[in-house]
Write a protein that binds this DNA or RNA. Sequence first.
RNA 1: UCCUCCUUAGCUCAGUUGGUUAGAGCACCUGACUGUUAAUCAGGGUGUCCUAGGUUCAAGUCCUAGAGGAGGAGCCA
Length: 479
Amino acid sequence: MKRTEIKDLLERADFGSKVNVKGWVRTKRGSKNVSFIALNDGSTIKNVQLVVEMSPAMEPLLEKIHTGAALSVTGDLTESMGSGQKVEVHATDIEILGVANPNDYPLQPKKHSLEFLREKAHLRYRTNTFSAIARIRHAMIFAIHKFFNDRGFYNIHSPIITGSDAEGAGEMFQVTTLDLNNIPKNEEGKADFQTDFFGKATNLTVSGQLEAELAALALSKVYTFGPTFRAENSNTTRHLAEFWMIEPEVAFCDINDDMDLAEDMLKYVIRYALDNCKDDLEFLSKRLLDEEKNKKADERSMELIEKLNFVLDNDFERITYTEAIQILRNSKPNKKKRFQFVIDGWGADLQSEHERYLVEKHFKKPVILTDYPKEIKAFYMKQNDDGKTVRAMDVLFPQIGEIIGGSQREEEYDKLATRMKEMDIPEESMWWYLETRKFGTVPHAGFGLGFERLILFLTGMGNIRDVIPFPRTPLNCEF
RNA sequence: UCCUCCUUAGCUCAGUUGGUUAGAGCACCUGACUGUUAAUCAGGGUGUCCUAGGUUCAAGUCCUAGAGGAGGAGCCA
């Protein structure tokens, strides 16, 4: 008999029909005459209730059914007599596809800590929290592609292995087929990459931006959505060594268009989540309330769905770095020296505490900071006429901090080449990038969105390791 | 990489100023119950108190080192 997915089954009202459901047992409970099994198949966060009347045939089966077991159940779709659900399935035939020995199966019908589940990442999909996150994550992947496709963008597969070591976005993972126990050396006594697979030193990409720029300067509107690797020894709730990044790049576009695009995209995908992931968001909202119930009222975060609507209903605040410094310099925590790093002059990079003050205390909504000092930003950013600042734009979100980093790009050959020299970027390995400024250069802009940071915000989770299935962080590459 | 905190039963956690045989809930097993909603009720046994040293008459508790984990900072998305 053809399987009905639980998501569809719960919408049906053709009571009396024979149905088949397959899934994994969440809980089993019961009395002498009747047992109830909550079955989940991942199609929705909701379970279907199986009702099993005790009989000589059923009894030995029920003894083998515990939390975690996989079942195929055929029975009658029935209007539920209980109060927790509208429909249920009265089982007439149960096949145990896979048992789960309760002495060994680590998941119980109770609350587990996120840390415990992180160590059971192969099984944590079977929990409400992680299945909800997985479904929302999928919806966001789809929504991002839809957003760009609907606006005429082309998706670009930027390379994962790169021969350029000048992307300037952090420490890189080396890619090599050399025998690490017997590394061939050149005359200088260093590793001889000429004998390596590509004949040169190669790494995993830290950004698809430079390649996206090449594509944008022909296709006008492109975006990448791929894995990104940073070998930084970062141990925080918002950094991963392997994460996914969305990087749109648009020709004939300045920093203001870039900010509009970033704000439109974020609002579009948040709206998409509210429209398509209601059950999962409601569950995660309750989870968050429960997790924070012991916190003081002023330390609790805004209710999840309210927070998402709040972002939709408000324009992001757009201010320059210089204006931000003014605000921070005059702020209470700065005057009372409550910041760990007191703001006293122009030019210093903003610390997390400053960004959080601007977003969470001063403006109380997402903030886009622009026009940073050129010294603290990357070489490729468009230089302003003041000679001091560049057209960078960072989108800051509450709790998450920087969710997007972007800029208008320097399209003038001379200015770009000069800046590269100043910052010791080797021109010879970047000749292809510079050539785009030699031949038909145009103003263009783009940004990078950290996908997992978006999912953190949408799900209300606190640790980025819980919004990617198999997190890679320093000293952790299990699974 | 730096700072702070944590590690006790399969899971979540309690364990007093160092003092007898280390506890609870859940899970599991047995029994009760005519429909439950993380069912309920009664009973059952479960420990390398992270590891290695040390102090002490006595260490889960104090000290040192190490391992693992978490939070914050930096780097950034």
